[in-house]
Simulated assay, not measured.
Amino acid sequence: MGSKSMEEHKNQSPLKIKVGIITLSDSKSDQRRFEDSKIKNVPPNDDLSGKIIMESLEDKHEIVSYNIIPDDAELLLKNLDKMRDNGAEIIISTGGTGIGKRDITIETITPLFKKELNGFGEIFRYESYKELGTGAMLSRATAGVWKETLLVALPGSPNAVQLGMKIIKPELGHLVKHMKN
């Protein structure tokens, strides 16, 4: 589907990426209190979205940190810093992207972006529209570069996470290569 030069360019990209995963959920974080960014081999059964992210990446990439936190901007910023300090080149979050009062992910991370990857959100909403119709406009999925780290914010639903990973996973190495140039 892509051009020959694009494929050659991708082939020069890093093969193994260090990834951090954050699930934002008041209810799930109440069940599991994480005070620091410890690596967890298996997300809890009730964190299907975190599990989808981890399982889609762990065969090819290194998961350096996984955390479940409440919908709290200060805690999100603290976790982003810790994950970046732990070497995460890409941090993928799930949850907190809606338009409810407790949804703080987008408002917290977009001011951090040096560069926003508008195309990710556009493709995500287009693909969602094909499945859901006009309700796709509620999605605020986004991605951007912060301190040579890619932040990807996905909605909390497992179907949305599967779609987001389908879009972003093939480009992870390519994105990291460009961020570091």
Rank of each mutant, 00 (worst) to 15 (best):
I123S: 04
E35S: 12
G50Y: 02
W146D: 05
I21E: 04
P43A: 12
I22H: 03
G164S: 10
G98N: 14
V64M: 08
I104K: 02
T149V: 15
N79F: 15
I17N: 01
L154I: 05
T97V: 14
L154H: 02
P155E: 13
G100Y: 13
L151W: 05
V161E: 06
L112F: 08
H61P: 01
K51M: 14
K51R: 13
P158S: 08
I53D: 01
H9Q: 08
V19S: 02
T105F: 07
L150G: 01
S139P: 07
K180V: 09
M179I: 13
G173A: 06
V42Y: 06
D85W: 09
L24N: 03
K114L: 06
E8C: 03
L172Y: 02
L112S: 06
K166V: 01
G95Q: 13
D71W: 06
K40R: 08
I90P: 00
L117Q: 04
N79L: 11
T110K: 11
V145T: 05
G119R: 10
K18Q: 08
P170W: 15
K18M: 07
I21N: 02
F120M: 07
V64H: 04
K147E: 15
G98A: 15
S65V: 03
I22K: 02
M179Y: 08
K10W: 00
A73I: 02
E127G: 00
E35G: 12
N79V: 11
